[in-house]
């Protein structure tokens, strides 16, 4: 059975650390980085990448549009 796997990229420098993507992701994929960007914000990153299904919710909810979402169908 084909399985959907996803992944996201985050434009670290433009992320303002608002964490809305963290709350929005139902799969608990996203967390906040321990390091900070040049503006001093912790930025979003994938803490459980394998759980990502590429549903694009995080990309849509991000006020600054820093998240791009990828999705691919993987044969079992």
């Amino acid at each position: 059975m084909a399985k959907i796997q996803g992944a996201i990229t985050v434009d670290r420098e433009r992320c303002k650390g608002c964490e809305l993507c963290v709350y929005t992701c139902e799969k608990g994929v996203i967390g906040m980085s321990t390091t900070v960007n040049s503006k001093g914000y912790h930025y979003a990153c994938m803490v459980n990448p394998e759980s990502c299904i590429g549903c694009t919710n995080c990309g849509i909810i991000c006020p600054d549009g820093v998240i791009s979402v990828y999705r691919v169908k993987v044969e079992e």
């Binding site: 996803g6 990309g59 006020p63 600054d64 549009g65 820093v66 998240i67 791009s68 979402v69």
Partner: peptide, 23 residues
């Protein structure tokens, strides 16, 4: 499968973190 629109300019938003304006 998703990225911000190409009609968005390079300039970063001046909205506060998490503001609905950006969306």
């Amino acid at each position: 499968v998703y990225q911000k629109s190409r009609l968005m300019a390079e300039k970063q938003f001046n909205f506060c973190p998490g503001c609905g304006h950006g969306v």
